[in-house]
């Protein structure tokens, strides 16, 4: 079964596989900041050279009791439970946008604490359950 040819092909394959895994790992490592779909408020806080003209995405949880609506402008706070970022947005929000739910905002930073969004995406979490169960859970809390 294990002729010389078979051994040669096997070693060729394993060498190829190792090399490509390493290559892809290096590529992904160097691209990692681009692969991130959004930055967290902590990332924003730690960023050194702030580029205000560049469009970025910020994501996290909508802080509890932080949504205020005035004159078609929605102001809310995105939090990752370490740092906060105030976001202002005017327009329609997705149905799933609500407090204590995930959100991704696309737009420009004004400064490190204030962000003007021109697009809001709701991020769904991994929990799926029927509505009755949710009510029960609320009552228990």
């Amino acid at each position: 079964m294990l002729t010389k040819k078979v051994k040669k092909r096997a070693s060729f394959l394993s060498a190829l596989l190792c090399l490509s895994v390493i290559a892809i790992f290096i590529i992904l490592k160097s691209l990692s900041s681009n692969i991130l779909y959004f930055k967290s408020p902590t990332d924003i806080k730690n960023v050194q050279d702030l580029n205000l003209s560049k469009k970025i995405r910020v994501g996290g949880m909508v802080k509890k009791n932080s949504i205020t609506v005035k004159n078609e402008e929605i102001i809310f706070i995105i939090t990752d439970f370490k740092n906060d970022l105030k976001v202002s947005y005017s327009g329609t929000v997705p149905n799933l946008f609500s407090e204590e739910k995930g959100v991704v905002a696309e737009g420009k930073l004004q400064d490190k604490k204030f962000f003007i969004a021109d697009r809001i995406l709701a991020k769904h979490d991994e929990n799926y359950m029927p509505p009755e169960l949710k009510d029960i859970m609320k009552n228990v809390k």
């Binding site: 991130l36 779909y37 995406l121 991020k123 979490d125 991994e126 929990n127 799926y128």
Partner: peptide
């Protein structure tokens, strides 16, 4: 990475959500 797509609900180890 941070993705818009939610993490897995059904895990090989641990309870599913």
């Amino acid at each position: 990475w941070n993705t818009l797509h939610q993490p897995a609900s059904i895990k090989i180890t641990g309870s599913s959500t």
